[in-house]
Computed example of a mutant assay.
Amino acid sequence: MRLRHPSGTPLHLGYCTNVHPAEDLGGIIAQLDAYAVPIRAALGTGVLGLGLWLAAPVAAELAADPAPLRRLRRELDVRGMEVVTLNGFPYRSFHDPVVKQAVYHPDWTTSDRLAYTLDLARVLAGLLPDDAARGSVSTLPLAWREPWNAAMADAAARHLDELAAGLAGIESETGRTVRVGFEPEPGCVVETTAQAIAHLAGADTERLGLCLDLAHLACAWEQPSAALKALRAAGLPIVKVQLSAALETTHPEALREYAEPRFLHQTRTPAGDAADDLDEALERGLPAPWRVHYHVPLHADPAPPLTTTIPVLREALTELAGGPEPLCDHYDVETYTWSVLPPALRPATAADLAAGIAAELEFARTELRELGVTG
């Protein structure tokens, strides 16, 4: 959706399509009709923003051949969809029965991750609306934390330099600017904003910055105003914000029905206790309260005694979009866990899922409007 900050800066709000399983062009186009078209109708918006997830094979196909890329652009245009951001975190197979730590591979020590991200940037340059100022691609925070050593850090640094050079080349060829945001996540080399500042020191901040996922920020028990102040002081731009909420509770036993086999649900306490998955946290009996990396629908509160980190989201949005100038112009709702929610909470049909995503987007739009954003 096209929104406008009181300063006059356009803000783009959409939803991330990694919630859908398609990994080929035909499937991606089919999911537009199954989900995006009814979402746009429910919201009554002329243009719906999509944060497309393109698995590595289809990204390579689109980057290499202009014909399918033109086809995708046409299919988006005729349905009233636009794309200013891509999710480049999952490489492929994001809806396998078990994903867990596989989502962090290949990581930034590898040339495969570099090639995939540059393919996405080339694709995005061809999809950007003519009047969009720039595009963004989100990516993983270098790697899972283990193993990690000096040689791996050196390899990642070289690839980041090559990434910045490649993005500059794409801009020279196409006239379109695409930036890449590294997304801090619990358990990774870059888990916090402080670690992002340390690991991205010396990076080309014209083209590289942060993707700020608000559920991840909350799970790290970071205070949004302090985190954003530190990022500004370091000159590290926020190129994309993922609007997401995590689970929180002082009664961990109530989380048992959320333990599931597909995704990791890293669990953290304010005292620094940590588990890499919810099953592990329950077995170890970490002291409460807990925040759990489990993206839950923004608009729907879970049953007590569970709650969510929506207060952190609201505080962060106030910092990001409530000032005289926005700190970011790309906002993506990213609740990819609809299919693994406890059975009673899962959407039963495609129409149910579309309605849920539309409700999340309406929630996000309302929150931004409360800060003076229009549209």
Rank of each mutant, 00 (worst) to 15 (best):
H293L: 04
D301V: 13
L282I: 09
E280K: 12
P289D: 06
Y294R: 02
E280C: 14
T267F: 02
G285I: 06
G285C: 06
G285W: 02
L282N: 02
D301L: 15
P297I: 09
Y294W: 12
L278W: 00
D301G: 11
E283P: 05
P297S: 10
A300P: 10
D301F: 13
V292H: 00
L264H: 04
T269R: 04
D277G: 04
H265L: 04
G285A: 06
D273W: 12
A275V: 10
L264D: 05
G285F: 01
H265Y: 10
R262P: 04
L298S: 00
H265G: 00
P270I: 12
D276E: 15
E280P: 02
R268A: 14
A271Y: 08
Q266I: 10
R268M: 09
H295C: 05
H265P: 02
A275G: 13
H293Q: 09
G285P: 02
R284F: 12
D279H: 12
L298M: 05
H293R: 05
P289K: 08
W290V: 03
L298E: 00
D279C: 02
L286E: 14
F263N: 06
R268W: 08
G272I: 03
F263C: 11
D276Y: 14
D301E: 15
F263Q: 04
Y294L: 00
W290F: 10
